[in-house]
Design a protein around this nucleic acid. Structure first.
Length: 505
RNA sequence: CGCGGGGUGGAGCAGCCCGGUAGCUCGCCAGGCUCAUAACCUGGAGGUCAUAGGUUCAAAUCCUGUCCCCGCAACCA
């Protein structure tokens, strides 16, 4: 059975979760669910990054110990994931013992391999950025809170892997996606790659994992956070498990942490002698606000606020439908409303109503038999059977938006088919034909629904329940004639834009 | 020369990597249907693909220059 190991970054707990965290995590969940229905064995990993200066500061500000602060913030993430129907397989917090001991193991191994050395460094230190900045960065005046600091620290010999990394990028076109990000990294690598400072003296910052070969130091973020990708699937603790899952199929990340992953993490893996993940995929950002619509409404709407009103599925659908992976996308309430009404209410939800309504009215509320299909139905059947493969190919190419659109386009085909066949007329003249049409439409809808299940798990579960087809596969013919349809309210009630205006004024 | 994204019919976007009738959603106009969440279906108007050059039989698509817009530059996917 093919396996699919997908990760999100582990999120930094110095603040509450926002749309960016939610987007990446939903995307990972959607990919995981697509792979599950394709029959792959899936491991979906997400979690929290809980060490570091800013966490310590955030805790101090609240008068809490760092761990108490983390324990308080972790549920906010977990609650949001629950609300959004995120079905992860493991959730790592870097303060967990199982992680800490592997981080120390990794540090020791890299040290033993001769890739870590100690050096004294004097330079400008940005308290805000928690790192030393270069002379040119200092003179740029862009960093506040800068002071001169002289300090002994441990360094990772990242520079020695520069050529190996360049060769790898050039010989593995799928490693960093989208392609322009790979080019960005190759551009970055044209400059000499310096070594990486990986420690902080406890005297200055002690909220971290102790370096095994020097107890006066803790390790800085890189060897802590990134290592979660291997510590969880069993590196150093469970060889069979690790062998099964590593390397990951994809690390999903935002474009802001591309360098961290494609350079720092990759060279760490080189040093450990491990394989690299198949793909690091950097998606774009959600830009919010600044449109006419939100201005006229006088407020900036956080997409996460829409969950309570319209449900997690609608928000998930919108986020997947609207962003072309790799580019930035704009969130506006207006585009959400349009997407919701047009795709979910008018096309998808309404098709269900048309079909179930007619079956209730003219066919005793039971799914009619298909009878003999004509050429028109054969064509629908062909499209329905082709849909899963089409969607799978698009998802594998990270074209999630296209995959969603492909399904909704098929829903439109079904609406057209209904219009052309007019089963409400046929019921008066040719009952057999009416039955055939409604079976075909319902069966098409069932298959389309299953292909949307990864994006909208809750609503699709409802649809399949209505159709009496829970657990069915996206293959033509599994809808059973004679099954009683459940009555139901509209799946996605239209958002009445006039009401909306009124209520917000 | 801070980093990055973008300029395609009224709005929002896809297409650009791998040149060859300019596509989608919304809106608008007309018609159809009247099973359905005033939804659905058909047809139509509307674009010199920012701009100036270049390459080519052929460019939204490749190359060069110019102009403009936006995000980041405090956190952060």
């Amino acid at each position: 059975m093919p396996k699919f190991f997908v990760t999100t970054p582990i999120y930094y707990v110095n603040d509450a979760p926002h749309i960016g965290h939610a987007y990446t995590t939903i995307l990972a969940d959607v990919l995981a669910r697509f792979h599950r229905i394709a029959g792959d064995e899936v491991f979906f990993l997400t979690g929290l990054d809980e060490h570091g200066q800013k966490v310590k500061q955030a805790a101090q500000k609240r008068g809490l110990k760092p761990q108490a602060h983390c324990d308080d913030l972790a549920p906010r993430f977990l609650n949001l994931w629950q609300k959004l129907d995120i079905r992860f397989d493991d959730f790592i917090r870097t303060t967990e013992e199982r992680h800490k001991k592997i981080v120390q193991l990794v540090l020791q191994k890299v040290h033993d391999a001769g890739d870590i050395y100690v050096d004294e460094y004097e330079g400008w230190y940005s308290v805000a950025e928690e790192r030393f900045i270069s002379q040119s960065e200092y003179t740029s005046g862009q960093f506040r809170d800068v002071k001169k600091l002289k300090e002994k620290n441990y360094f990772f010999k990242m520079g020695k892997y520069q050529q190996q990394l360049i060769d790898y990028l050039e010989s593995h076109p799928d490693f960093i996606e989208p392609e322009h990000r790979k080019n960005e990294m190759l551009g970055f690598l044209r400059q000499p790659l310096s070594d990486l400072c990986i420690s902080r003296p406890k005297a200055r910052m002690d909220w971290g994992i102790e370096i095994p070969f020097d107890r006066d130091y803790v390790t800085y973020v890189w060897f802590d956070a990134l290592v979660n990708y291997i510590s969880v699937p069993g590196y150093g603790s469970d060889d069979a498990k690790f062998k099964k899952w590593w390397p990951a199929q994809v690390h999903l990340i935002g474009k802001d942490i591309l360098t961290t992953h494609s350079i720092y993490w990759t060279t760490i893996l080189f040093s450990l002698g491990l394989s690299l993940p198949k793909t690091i995929f950097a998606h774009g950002w959600w830009l919010i606000g600044q449109t006419k619509m939100s201005k006229s409404l006088g407020n900036v709407v956080n997409p996460l606020d829409l969950i309570d009103q319209y449900g997690a599925d609608a928000v998930r659908y919108y986020l997947m439908r609207e962003m072309v992976l790799g580019s930035d996308a704009n969130f506006t309430l207006d585009s959400f409303n349009k997407c919701f009404n047009s795709d979910l209410a008018n096309d998808f939800g309404n098709l269900l109503n048309r079909v179930s309504g007619l079956i209730a009215k003219n066919h005793g509320g039971r799914i009619p038999g298909a009878g003999l299909l004509t050429a028109v139905e054969e064509d629908i059947k062909k499209q329905a059977n082709a849909l899963p493969g089409k969607v799978k190919d698009l998802v594998n190419a990270f074209e999630v938006q296209e995959a969603v659109v492909a399904v909704i386009e098929f829903v439109r085909v079904l609406n057209k088919y209904m219009e052309a066949q007019a089963p409400w007329k046929l019921a008066r003249t040719d009952m057999k034909a009416a039955e055939r049409v409604l079976y075909t439409a319902a069966e098409g809808l069932r298959i389309a629904s299953i292909m949307l299940a990864p994006v909208m798990p809750q609503k699709i579960a409802t649809v399949l329940d209505i159709l009496g087809a829970v657990g069915s596969k996206p293959v033509w013919g599994q809808l059973k004639a004679g099954t009683a349809l459940k009555t139901h309210p509209p799946l996605f009630p239209r958002i009445e834009l006039d009401d909306l205006k009124k209520s917000s004024v």
